[in-house]
Nucleic acid binder design. Structure first.
Length: 405
DNA sequence: CACCGTTCAGTTGAACTAAGCAACGGAATTCGG
DNA sequence: GAATTCCGTTGCTTAGTTCAACTGAACGGTGGA
């Protein structure tokens, strides 16, 4: 684009009749001031948390529900209001929200406590080198220095427990008995409904003092939510009939994931806008659906560590069509992987580690791995790539670039 | 043909190791009087 | 002589390795019909 044109481009971009009136509303961090179809849960939550305003320790709460059922929004909404009131009443109340799934933020016990400390005050804790007890002690001292009511919200807590065991939950629930001034209360949020079953009994009883379940939304509920948001986000008359309905239907099929529905609507809007349309028609929903999926895949791939990428590259390389085999077994894959490592100057990991990587890639949904026993032929994992064909070209490019081919 | 022990090629869990980091404490150095 | 800096030691986390037990169905041998 020549420079003159570029200037014009930006100008018209600004003056262009835009589809959105307030896109913020569809952003994932937007906190609506009215949450639909979650009155029961919010009321329940509020009544459990309310005693904190009298400086009485509220029960620990355990919240389950699939993704996009409004868990996080409801909790944020409730605590937000609680905080506002506490400020008016001069109650020293504080909440900390931590998403345990984030890598390198809170994926071990040590790091969880370290981030708690960082969120709580600006004291920074070295990211390695200290004994975990020491980190607990620092947290505890900071906490007890003044009188404070702390509510800790641990999102996706099941991920952390699965990875590092439930020790930290026990420690956190036990801290209260040592604190002289302050009180902490936990809210655990989990996507996995069966998660509590394999917790230690002590923890189960102390964390699960109260339990809340967020059922999936059905199609009409999602429609309500979408309509509400759409009214604020889009200019009037932009959305053609059937769009919201289609969005809702698609999301309802995916276990009632409202976040997905909202994303869908936003992306669809963005796509339409980019094509300089002033109406949002149904076809953009399909395009958005497609885009979301491909963005997710491309994003997860490009943010993986090198060895993950090397393994994935090996898988893609040896299962591409020209080799008329659509799966690869772990032994063959390992050799292939070592070869790639040699080419790129990467020191190959052992088979054991690659096995872990395969498991991880499987979890991410980038590949499909099944353990099969071939009798005397031993046992293997049959590994297939699960990347839609339309993306393979781009995935390949990303991997090659990142691996330095 | 049915049954059963063997065998293969990885899988998987647990213990272990190396690397990187922070804190501690003693030795060396600096500094002000 | 006190304060500060330097440096080796210790003890920690974490990523990855090593070790070894385990797996599950086809293979092939055995015995019974």
């Amino acid at each position: 684009m020549a420079q003159k044109q570029l200037k014009n481009f930006f100008k018209t971009f600004l003056t262009k009749e835009r589809i959105f009136s307030n896109k913020q509303v569809l952003q994932s961090n937007y906190l609506p001031d009215n949450i639909l179809h979650r009155d029961d849960q919010i009321n329940m939550l509020a009544s459990i948390l309310a005693p904190s305003l009298n400086f009485e320790k509220p029960s620990n709460i355990f919240i389950y529900g699939k993704t996009g059922t409004g868990k996080t929004v409801s909790v944020n909404y409730t605590t937000e209001n609680l905080l506002a009131v506490s400020k008016e009443q001069n109650v020293p109340l504080k909440t900390i929200y931590i998403n345990c799934k984030l890598k390198r933020v809170a994926d071990t016990e040590y790091r969880l406590i370290a981030t708690l400390i960082k969120e709580f005050s600006n004291v920074s804790v070295p990211f390695t080198g200290l004994p975990t007890d020491e980190v607990y002690r620092i947290f505890y001292e900071l906490l007890d220095k003044e009188k404070i009511m702390l509510i800790i919200i641990l999102d996706e807590i099941d991920q952390l427990v699965k990875k590092t065991g439930d020790e930290f939950l026990y420690n956190l629930t036990r801290i209260n008995s040592d604190l002289k001034n302050s009180v902490i209360s936990l809210i655990g949020i989990s996507n996995d409904l069966l998660f509590v079953d394999n917790l230690d009994a002590r923890i189960k009883s102390s964390l699960g003092e109260e339990e809340l379940v967020f059922p999936p939304y059905d199609a009409t509920q999602i429609q309500d939510i979408l309509l509400e948001r759409a009214k604020k986000a889009f200019k009037e008359g932009v959305i053609l009939p059937g769009v919201v309905e289609k969005c809702a239907a698609l999301a309802a099929r995916e276990h009632g994931d409202a976040r997905r529905a909202i994303d869908l609507l936003r992306i669809a809007g963005e796509l339409a806008e980019r094509e300089e349309k002033d109406k949002l028609s149904v076809e953009y929903i399909d395009k958005a659906q497609h885009k979301i999926e491909s963005d997710r895949i491309l994003d997860t791939i490009s943010t993986q560590p090198k060895h993950f990428q090397a393994v994935l590259f090996a898988i893609i390389n040896s299962t591409s069509n020209y080799r008329n085999k659509d799966f690869i077994s772990s032994g063959v894959l390992y050799n292939e992987y070592v070869e790639i490592c040699e080419k790129t100057g990467l020191r190959p990991l052992t088979q054991r580690s690659v096995s872990n990587i395969i498991a991880e890639l499987d979890m991410l949904g980038l590949i499909d791995a099944n353990v099969i026993s071939k009798g005397r032929g031993g046992r293997t994992k049959e590994i297939r790539q699960a990347i839609p064909p339309s993306l393979q070209q781009r995935v390949n490019e990303i991997l090659q670039k990142s691996l330095g081919f």
